[in-house]
Simulated assay, not measured.
Amino acid sequence: MRVYPKFILSATDAAHFPAPSAPEIAFLGRSNVGKSSLINALLGSKQAHVSSTPGRTRAINFFSITDKPERQQAQMIFADLPGYGYAKISKSISAEWPKFINPYLAERPTLALCICLVDSTIPPQPSDIQLIEYLQSRERSLLVIGTKADRLSGNERVKAMNLLRKGLNVDGLLFCSAKTGAGMSELWQTIQSAASEK
């Protein structure tokens, strides 16, 4: 699918969020899980900054997505949230996450889908479990993406998928690889479906 992304702004405070308009897709994950790589693979461009230093993103970065370059109005908006995992996540998400994350996830009216990225090559992490439980408690639509799936053989993939489903207590789980493109068309379908329902 060909899309035309455009960077809108970086928000470091709830007051900086763009006015709610198009359906928003939020990307969340532990630092170094491959979030920026996945967003760039989806968009077909280097919009999200890929850093070798985990935890670099300290703001929510908003991107407008359209299907035609001349279209001014965003059809959907991607929100790239800061990575977590360096400090223990508390019940209110995390002391180390900036304070504006909670209001975004809890109150944003245009938030259509939360895409939670987890590393498919390791068991479910406590911080991932807490984040998913938090989103479920807020009745947010979510999809769990297992990243780095290209590093697993067919048999390992089945085992990892079962382990993550059980450990994270989710049904919606998709393995993707930014490197090979595996799972990307299914992910786009889920995003479009969530956006059209909002």
Rank of each mutant, 00 (worst) to 15 (best):
G85M: 07
I129W: 04
L163R: 13
A11I: 03
R108H: 04
K46R: 15
P5S: 04
L143I: 08
A41M: 01
L131Y: 03
S137K: 08
Q130C: 09
P126I: 06
Q47S: 15
A41P: 03
R2P: 06
K6Q: 13
G34L: 02
D119P: 05
V3W: 11
R165K: 11
V3D: 07
A26V: 08
K88Q: 09
E156P: 01
G83M: 01
L143S: 08
V118R: 03
P123T: 05
S120Y: 03
S94Q: 15
P20V: 06
A22R: 09
F175W: 02
S185W: 01
P103W: 05
Q189Y: 12
R138N: 14
R58D: 06
K88E: 14
L173G: 01
A106Y: 14
G167R: 00
S90Y: 00
S193Y: 08
S21D: 15
T147E: 10
A112G: 07
P98E: 13
L43I: 00
P82N: 09
P123Y: 06
K99N: 13
T121W: 00
P123S: 11
L142R: 03
K35Q: 03
P54R: 05
R140C: 08
I60E: 11
N162G: 14
R165G: 05
Q73S: 12
F63Y: 14
L131H: 00
G29D: 10
A41G: 07
R138P: 10
I93W: 12
L163Q: 15
L143W: 11
D13M: 00
W97H: 12
K148D: 07
A87F: 10
I8E: 15
S10L: 04
I129H: 09
Y134R: 03
R2K: 14
E139L: 04
P103L: 03
G44S: 10
S90M: 02
I101C: 14
C176G: 02
F7G: 11
I191Q: 08
Q136N: 09
I8T: 15
C116I: 04
W97Y: 13
C176F: 00
I93A: 14
F78A: 05
S31V: 00
K91M: 07
L135R: 07
P109E: 08
L43G: 02
L187C: 09
Q72S: 14
A59Q: 13
V170F: 08
I132K: 06
G85D: 12
V50F: 01
V170T: 15
K68W: 01
A106Q: 15
V170S: 06
L135C: 11
G29P: 05
K159W: 05
G44W: 10
I132H: 08
S177N: 01
G55D: 01
S127T: 13
K6E: 13
P82I: 03
I115S: 04
L168M: 05
R151Y: 02
Q72I: 06
N61C: 07
K99A: 15
R108D: 11
K46D: 11
E197G: 03
L142E: 10
V33I: 12
G146M: 11
N102H: 12
W97E: 12
N32V: 04
S51N: 09
S21V: 01
G44Q: 10
L152W: 10
I191V: 06
T180W: 05
P54D: 14
L174Y: 04
D67L: 03
P23G: 11
Q136G: 04
